[in-house]
């Protein structure tokens, strides 16, 4: 499918898709017996809008099309939702998902994604690298004369990595306005809440100081997400969308909990969660 052809996204349909993707992500994490549900659910609505709201220009049957838009999940641990989205988009099949985090996975569905999987641009797993890589892609496609856009989802804890701010300076220097960073600001990291681990605030001021085009939205409000993603590019500044999200969004007992950063649900919790994801 070509995402760009969907011009009038149906918000209700997008919400339905997001719910379906949350169920799928939880299923594969449950089946794998390990994974990262919290950070998958905080990013679900953002990724749903990008892939199924007509924002990203892609063709799953031609994943290496040089003119495509790029999507990078820099917070690579949210692979549960990433592979679910790639399956829904047609890069891989839903049955491929059974091999998530399993040995001999034909589509290489590792705990953190790798470009051996169709639709994946670069390996992840070490935080802080995706914005630089995305910027390199943004410069490369511009050099080729294409108007491709590059979207990079960053975790909030990831912004504690110094390299993010190196990349922020670089994208300003090269006026890479085709680079869009989306901060999945779920306020919770692995062993602590982000604020106590190392506070990011004042976050908008930081990005403004780096001369980016800064937007802040509710990252679970589909209308707001679509509105900001549909904005025309800034004439010269790279864009950052700070999306306020909730870790584990959609499952009450997971929401806002560090405990649900990197564990799979038990059979009982899985059933409980599915009842909420309707």
């Amino acid at each position: 499918m070509n995402g760009s052809q969907l011009t009038t996204p149906d918000i209700t349909q997008l919400k339905k898709t997001a719910l379906e993707l949350r169920r799928l992500a939880l299923k594969i994490i449950f089946q794998a017996g390990s994974g990262h549900p919290g950070g998958s659910f905080s990013a679900t609505d953002l990724m749903t809008a990008l892939f199924f709201g007509g924002i990203l220009n892609y063709d799953a049957n031609n994943p290496k099309d040089p003119k495509r838009d790029r999507f990078l999940l820099s917070k690579g641990h949210a692979s549960g939702i990433y592979y679910s989205v790639l399956a829904k988009a047609g890069y891989i099949s839903e049955s491929d998902l059974d091999s998530y985090r399993k040995i001999n996975s034909e589509r290489f569905l590792s705990g953190h994604a790798h470009p051996k999987t169709p639709g994946v641009e670069i390996a992840s797993g070490s935080l802080g690298q995706g914005l630089s890589v995305g910027h390199g892609i943004a410069m490369g496609t511009r050099l080729d004369g294409y108007d491709s856009k590059v979207y990079v989802i960053l975790g909030d804890g990831e912004l504690q990595e110094g390299q993010i701010w190196e990349a922020a300076m670089s994208a300003d220097k090269f006026k890479s306005n085709n680079l869009v960073a989306i901060v999945d600001y779920n306020k919770v990291a692995q062993d602590n809440i982000t604020k106590d681990l190392k506070d990011l605030e004042p976050l908008e001021d930081k990005w403004n100081a780096f001369n980016w085009d800064v937007h802040r939205i509710d990252g679970h409000n589909m209308e707001a997400i679509m509105k900001v993603l549909q904005l025309p590019l800034h004439p010269e500044k790279p864009r950052v969308i700070i999306a306020d999200t909730i870790k584990g969004k959609g499952v009450s007992f997971m929401e806002g909990k560090t405990a649900w950063h990197g564990v799979a649900p038990s059979a009982e919790d899985y059933e409980k969660a599915l009842k909420e994801l309707v």
Binding site: P66, P115, E121, I122, G128, Q129, S132, V133, G134, H135, G136, I137, A138, M139, G140, T141, L143, D144, G162, Q163, E166, A167, M169, S170, K173
Partner: peptide, 18 residues
């Protein structure tokens, strides 16, 4: 600039575009 980590990842991104 003096930012080697950013540079090598930017190079990787450029490489993915051929």
């Amino acid at each position: 600039g003096i930012a080697e980590a950013d540079m090598v990842c930017t190079a990787a991104g450029l490489a993915t575009t051929g």
